[in-house]
Design a protein around this nucleic acid. Structure first.
Length: 481
RNA sequence: GGCGCCGUGGCCGAGAGGCUGAGGCACGGGUCUGCAAAACCCGAUACACCGGUUCGAUUCCGGUCGGCGCCUCCA
């Protein structure tokens, strides 16, 4: 099995990745808190986690990917109050929207998507264990984690507790003993959603649900815990404290954090107001264009977002679509039958199948090596394009057999699938009958050398959103990009 | 202020101590085409700056300048 190296934010080094459970990879990625639609920045870790899953699967691993949905939280409550609805109502609306939006990406779904509100027993149990272990204390109706009792606190965010205490404050209404302590359980205020607990009715603090659910589904010391860089502190720092405080052992083996998505060098953030909702983006761009955009950079790099960059990703996807379109036509045309210097074949020129497939194999090796090196999707995508050119060259030369071409298609398709771009390989150009008829008429006009009419028809076809491409033996109508 | 990351050609974006600097987009020139599109071929300019280590650094070390993230809700 290929040896994968992964960068671990905790140790700040790339290490060889070996799953805890042999051929089973266990991963947990922090999903959304559902108080609003998700934006493009939120979509990045979703895409990364799904691509990582596909990559591990391509290596023969079985993967269990858990991605939570946090459906009880201060922000949800705030929104509910502001809109005069129940917290559960708000949470359900945006949880559904999240599923809907990410579904449209076409990457499939994580294996388990647990909701915080459905895991109260596990959450309460974890808090109880922390209290029993002396890591947490009750203050009024709240329960707080006592940061001083956890020696490694700050090790993920590389911060000294003394340093952190400088700016920290205790917000009014909180009964914590130390400004750095954080709430594990919050007593319910009137009108807030609440669950019964040993400390009275209340709800979990942010952070604890992720520790409880990841431990429930993946167990102690699972392989990969991921999320955006901005989650390092306090979210993941606190998760480590909670989980390891309760466990007395290792919580996670690799911490994986993706870089932020910025607009004009500024983080895409709701407070700054420069957000682009995923659902809005999907109205303007094909899902695979968004995926190509993400996959085009290394996951740890910060990325800039702009329409220009999205348009560029669109060009890349178009290039892939053209390749698969050509491949499909070639295969269905029976190899070198169409648009090909048949004299070359007639003269007994050998098929270049072996040659091209060897090239594909070589590309695949580099592709795999790139992904094995901390999931370098950008380099891997580069190999796909390089192979794409080689494929186009062979296709244009017409020296492939249909069998060779379809083997080639399969190989490129497999690479494209790992990167989440299979939609670019599934080219089914539905052309309305009347548009096809116009194209046929245009052929007639061309044959009659009535180019004015031919051009008129092409414009008419274009107006319908399609593009005619002439070839040696006819024409092809494709949807305009 | 503390912690972390980054600075590659017109743009995006890989990369490695020395091999012809991946790939994509854009641009220019070709091939093909009635025209066009697609595809293919060719093309210039880069490694922020200053030192150091080295036979040799864009790649390692130090500093300068610039940018970003976290330290407060945040993917």
């Amino acid at each position: 099995m290929t040896s994968v190296r992964l960068y671990d934010s905790l140790t700040q080094e790339k290490r060889t990745f070996e799953p805890r459970d042999g051929d089973h990879v266990t991963m947990y990625f922090c999903g959304p808190t559902v108080y609003n639609y998700i934006h493009l920045g939120n979509a990045r870790p979703f895409v990364i986690s799904m691509v990582a899953k596909r990559y591990f699967e391509s290596l023969g691993y079985k993967v269990t990917l858990v991605e939570n949905i946090t459906d009880v939280d201060d922000r949800i409550i705030q929104k509910a109050i502001a809109e005069g609805r129940t917290s559960a109502d708000v949470a359900r609306e945006f949880a559904d929207a999240y599923i809907e939006d990410t579904d449209r990406l076409g990457l499939g779904r994580p294996d388990i998507e647990p909701y915080a509100t459905e895991h109260m027993p596990e959450i309460i149990d974890l808090v109880e264990r922390l209290v029993a272990a002396g890591h947490a204390y009750q203050a009024g109706t709240d329960v707080y984690f006592d940061v001083d009792t956890f020696e490694g606190y700050g090790s993920l965010s590389k911060q000294q507790t003394a340093e952190m205490r400088h700016g920290a404050r205790i917000t009014p209404g909180e009964a914590k003993a130390d400004a750095l302590d954080f709430a594990l359980w919050k007593g319910a205020k009137p009108g807030e959603p609440s669950w019964e607990s040993p400390w009275g009715p209340g709800r979990p603090g942010w952070h604890i649900e992720c520790s409880a659910m990841s431990l429930k589904y993946l167990g102690p010391g699972f392989d990969i815990h991921g999320g955006g860089r901005d989650l390092i502190f306090p979210h993941h720092e606190n998760e480590i404290a909670q989980a390891e405080g309760a466990l007395g052992g290792e919580f996670v083996r690799f911490w994986v954090h993706n870089g932020m998505l910025n607009t004009k060098d500024e983080k895409m953030s709701k407070s700054i107001g420069n957000i682009f909702m995923l659902r809005e983006a999907l109205k303007e761009y094909r899902p695979e264009v968004l995926i190509a955009f993400f996959v085009g950079s290394h996951y740890r790099s910060p990325m800039d977002f702009s329409r220009e960059l999205l348009a560029e990703a669109g060009q890349q996807v178009g290039r892939l679509r053209n390749l698969f379109r050509t491949l499909d036509d070639y295969i269905s045309g029976g190899g070198d039958a169409d648009a090909v210097p048949s004299d070359a074949r007639a003269a007994g020129a050998p098929s270049s199948d072996a040659e091209v497939l060897a090239a594909a194999e070589a590309r695949r090796v580099i592709f795999d090596e790139a992904l094995a090196d901390d999931l370098n999707t950008a380099a891997a995508l580069g190999e796909v394009f390089a192979l794409s050119r080689e494929a186009n060259t062979a296709l244009a030369a017409g020296t492939l057999t249909a069998i060779g071409a379809s083997a080639l298609r399969k190989r490129i398709g497999a690479m494209v699938h790992i990167l989440g771009l299979d939609a670019a390989a599934e080219v089914d150009d539905e052309v309305p009958a009347d548009v096809h008829e116009m194209a046929t008429q245009r052929q007639v006009a061309r044959a009659a050398r009535d180019f004015a009419e031919a051009d008129r028809l092409r414009d008419a076809i274009l107006a319908r959103g399609f593009e005619v491409r002439d070839s040696a033996d006819g024409f092809k109508v494709v949807p305009g990009e």
